[in-house]
Amino acid sequence: MTNPQHLRYTKTHEWVGYDPATKTVTTGITEFAVKALGDLVYVELPEIGELMEIGHPFAEIESVKAVANINGGVGADITEVNEDLPNNLEWLVSDPYGKGWIAKGKVAGPDEWNRLLDAAAYGKHCESEKH
């Protein structure tokens, strides 16, 4: 599994990208999470205007026998959601860090984002969870 270097990660397996030009974050779930969940059947997206909060669920993803929260990695006002995703769940498998994004939001700055795990630290975290 390769976790892109330009993204940051949470221990609960969300990834967060940050665009300093627009002060916007983009978030989704990692390849590790997708594999752990197995065959996906549903994603429940948040509504635009809702708040994303650190460590709090803002969306949900389901396989046949499990349901997982998608938690906020940073605090943000949700400005955009991936409306096409519920009908194209295979994107989460084929392109979790691209077409499989879940929501975007406005943030005040990069501070919270900077505090998340980088790709190397997240990779280590995944290794430890496998055991």
Binding site: V41, S63, V64, K65, A66, V67
Partner: peptide, 12 residues
């Protein structure tokens, strides 16, 4: 749609 139910979603 068993994920709606108590044996999977428990308190939610």
């Amino acid at each position: 749609l068993g994920t709606r139910e108590q044996h999977i979603r428990r308190d939610r």
